[in-house]
Amino acid sequence: MNTIRLIIVAVGGQGNLLAAKVLGEAALAAGVPVRMSEIHGMAQRGGVVESAVVIGQAGSSLISDGEADILLGFEPSETLRALGKCHRDTVVITNLAPLPPFTVAIGKGVYPDLDRVQALIREKTKRLIAFDAVALAKAAGNVMALNMVLLGALIETGLLPITAEEVQTAIRTKTKADLAKVNLQAFALGMEAAQKAA
């Protein structure tokens, strides 16, 4: 099995750690080796949170700059910030609903134009799948299901040796019971969105 390296970037509180965990549980059920690493602590107070997911035989659980095969971004400016993790054949999936950092409000920096963000990512990588995942999470019933929407889009690409059924089972067993229905709906909407984007 080839090694596939996936980077997930998000803003603290967007639920990327749970997304990685669900993916890991699905990989366990699928018998696919996986190692993941994440950053906790101070970084979680509204800062950038990054998870690395390495699927396949490699021993490392870290991903160096320029070596991510897939970049899954929960926030468009964070996806752009993480572009250094990508190479020319990277597939990028991003939510398009912005969450401007506070520094913008106090005049320290300008939030990048969304069309330009997409054009830049398209120009430099193999493929971009971009859509408003927050709207889909809301449509599924809870804005917190953003992570499951993006997980749906990721699985739809078929780049991972993990099936939708395996992820759905993990969602059912590893996310809060009262949210499982919303999460499954969000996952389905994410798959649909990625299909349309194809």
Binding site: G46, L80, T125
Partner: peptide
């Protein structure tokens, strides 16, 4: 060395330091 992406035309993304809630 694997070819790095040329990011010279990517605008600077505003910083997102951790913050009090």
């Amino acid at each position: 060395e694997k070819a790095k992406l040329d990011l010279s035309n990517v605008p600077e993304v505003p910083a997102r330091p951790p913050n009090l809630c």
